[in-house]
């Protein structure tokens, strides 16, 4: 059966019965079809292509490179496309100390990112260094103890974000 979206009237899109019938007809005709909200599709896409900003200030950045290399391979979440511009990035993995001179720069980078945006605080410098970072997702608890944050812990942090993002949840602003 031939279905043309163009032929559907505007009201029909809101009519669940009409759409259910249409889906049944299509399935009967051998076409595989999934019905869902466009938001879900968007979230699924976003969660599997979260691109980090290259933002390594100190030691944790080396572990971030290990995360990108073969053993930890963050490409399996679709996270491997490390961006150099905040405008193309979805999250900052803040690796290392943020001092007084760097703080305005980090704030500006955060503001330049497009929504939805996330910050992962890595390692003990960022998490408890006494500076205020707008971290929406705290690093995994192991990260608090580790200095620098081992690649495995960063991996775990990325995974938390990956699992959380499809529901459109945002963590508490710390």
């Amino acid at each position: 059966m031939e279905v043309k979206i163009k032929s559907m009237k505007h009201e029909d899109f809101k009519d669940n019965e009409y759409i259910d019938n249409l889906v049944e007809q299509l399935r009967a005709g051998g076409t595989n079809i999934i019905v869902g909200k466009l938001d879900q599709l968007m979230n699924w896409g976003v969660s599997n292509s979260l691109w980090p900003l290259c933002f390594g200030t100190s030691c944790c950045a080396i572990e971030f490179m290990c995360l990108g290399a073969a053993r930890y391979d963050m490409a399996r979440y679709g996270f491997e496309v490390a961006r150099n511009s905040p405008r193309q990035a979805d999250y900052i993995m803040c690796q290392g100390t943020i001092n007084y001179r760097m703080a305005p720069a980090l704030k500006r980078l955060y503001e330049q990112m497009a929504e939805p945006k996330y910050v992962i605080a890595c390692g003990s410098c960022t998490v408890s260094g006494g500076r205020r970072v707008p971290a929406r997702l705290p690093a995994p608890s192991r990260g608090l103890l580790l200095c620098p944050d081992a690649a495995a812990a960063q991996d775990q942090g990325a995974e938390v974000l990956w699992r959380r993002e499809p529901q459109g949840e945002t963590g508490p602003q710390v």
Binding site: C66, A69, R71, A151
Partner: peptide, 18 residues
């Protein structure tokens, strides 16, 4: 980075940190 992991493993086993 593939070969560096070997060295990190040695550090990890002896010192408990990479």
């Amino acid at each position: 980075f593939r070969e560096r992991e070997l060295i990190y493993d040695i550090f990890d086993r002896t010192c408990g940190a990479r």
